[in-house]
Simulated scan of single mutants.
Amino acid sequence: MFRFLALLALLLPLAPAQAYWEYGHETIARIAYANVRPATRAAIRRVLADQALLGTPECPAGDVAQASYWADCVKPLKDAAGQSRFGYAYAWHYQNVDVCRPFDRTSACIDGNCVSAQVERQAALLRAPDTTRADRVRALAFLLHFAGDLHQPLHAGDKSDRGGNDLAAAYGIYAPKRFNIHSVWDGPLAERAITSGPPLVRRYPAATRARLAAGDVASWSRESWQVSHDAVYASALGGDACAPSPARVTLDDATVARLAPTLRDQVLKGGLRLAKLLDRALG
């Protein structure tokens, strides 16, 4: 029974309703909410009070935690003709910048169809005084989500493997067939990272906020891409991120322990940087 429960605990974070970036997005949004100015916090509540204007009762967005994964929740929604209602936004969740070539955000963001461009666009919509109420609540939900996506390294850089989805992986002793390097970082590794150490959701000193939120969306994008190279692929491929990828990789216990703080830092940075964007847009 103990072994069964242990395996179940590892499996549950990967179920659709409990995927890491539901938990991860919630954590990043809550960090941001705890670190924005009081006026920004009040403005966020006012905007989310219009959640009905999203027209997605299946995917509530009544608070920052719900709104932070709204953009994933709405992906399968279809209109009366059976067409995807939000298919236009699929490419907004990531940018496939090759980690083994010089960083090139421009070619990955043609017509704004990438995560970093959409972080900038949704923040601008949220800030603009003439944005309609419906567009404003949608922009806030997208921004809350995309700021999290930007700090998941495999949404910022990959090796032509769909953000690691095509690279099968084992996590420690646990290796279900449906694991890949992306789901490892989304699921059990992220669960461990967020729950290890003091609670991440708290108010941070001004000096910490200023240090970790320094820079802009472009520099954060490049940083996450570098983490994808230095941590994700290097750890999976024996230290050489650009070595040919095998059919399957294994992250042993020592590697997992080494990587968890890196992902924990990404979550914290994502939250404090989102707070900075929200203060600029709504504060």
Results as ranks from 00 to 15, higher is better:
151 H>G: 02
201 V>I: 12
241 A>I: 04
88 Y>M: 01
165 N>T: 04
197 G>W: 07
52 A>L: 11
203 R>V: 01
22 E>D: 09
79 D>Y: 10
166 D>C: 04
273 R>G: 09
214 A>Y: 01
87 G>H: 07
154 L>E: 05
124 A>P: 06
58 E>Q: 14
46 R>H: 09
141 A>I: 06
244 P>V: 12
201 V>Y: 00
71 A>H: 06
233 Y>K: 08
97 V>C: 03
186 D>V: 08
80 A>S: 14
37 R>K: 14
252 D>C: 15
256 V>D: 02
168 A>E: 11
42 A>Y: 00
224 S>C: 08
4 F>H: 14
91 A>E: 08
218 A>Y: 01
110 I>N: 05
34 A>C: 10
99 V>M: 07
28 I>N: 00
35 N>S: 04
232 V>E: 07
249 V>I: 14
57 P>E: 12
42 A>R: 05
116 S>W: 05
255 T>C: 13
177 K>R: 14
93 H>V: 03
211 R>C: 03
23 Y>M: 04
96 N>D: 13
148 G>E: 01
217 V>S: 01
172 G>I: 06
57 P>G: 14
213 A>I: 04
231 A>R: 06
250 T>P: 08
261 P>S: 13
134 A>E: 08
64 V>D: 07
268 L>W: 03
66 Q>K: 15
131 T>E: 00
173 I>R: 10
139 A>Y: 02
59 C>Y: 06
70 W>Q: 14
197 G>P: 05
48 L>N: 12
70 W>D: 09
26 E>N: 10
192 R>I: 09
134 A>C: 03
132 T>K: 01
170 A>C: 15
130 D>E: 10
159 K>R: 09
9 A>H: 07
236 A>C: 10
25 H>A: 10
241 A>S: 11
122 Q>E: 13
99 V>T: 12
283 G>M: 08
216 D>K: 00
101 R>D: 08
254 A>E: 13
40 T>G: 05
121 R>D: 05
71 A>W: 00
88 Y>A: 07
14 L>F: 08
193 A>G: 13
27 T>I: 01
272 L>E: 10
215 G>S: 06
147 A>Y: 00
262 T>I: 13
227 V>S: 02
2 F>I: 15
162 R>Y: 05
47 V>F: 06
205 P>D: 01
42 A>F: 02
252 D>Q: 15
224 S>L: 02
172 G>T: 09
199 P>N: 09
258 R>W: 15
130 D>H: 06
121 R>H: 13
109 C>T: 13
272 L>Y: 13
126 L>W: 09
101 R>E: 13
243 A>C: 13
49 A>W: 08
46 R>S: 11
34 A>E: 14
179 F>L: 14
247 A>D: 14
158 D>F: 03
27 T>Q: 02
67 A>L: 15
216 D>H: 00
235 S>H: 10
121 R>T: 11
194 I>F: 00
167 L>M: 02
105 R>C: 00
15 A>C: 12
55 G>I: 08
156 A>T: 02
31 I>E: 04
193 A>R: 03
266 Q>K: 15
96 N>P: 05
50 D>C: 07
147 A>N: 06
27 T>E: 02
211 R>T: 07
100 C>L: 11
91 A>M: 11
19 A>R: 07
89 A>Q: 15
6 A>L: 11
255 T>G: 11
57 P>I: 14
43 A>R: 11
238 G>N: 03
148 G>I: 04
126 L>C: 03
174 Y>N: 09
163 G>N: 02
268 L>F: 06
129 P>C: 11
195 T>I: 10
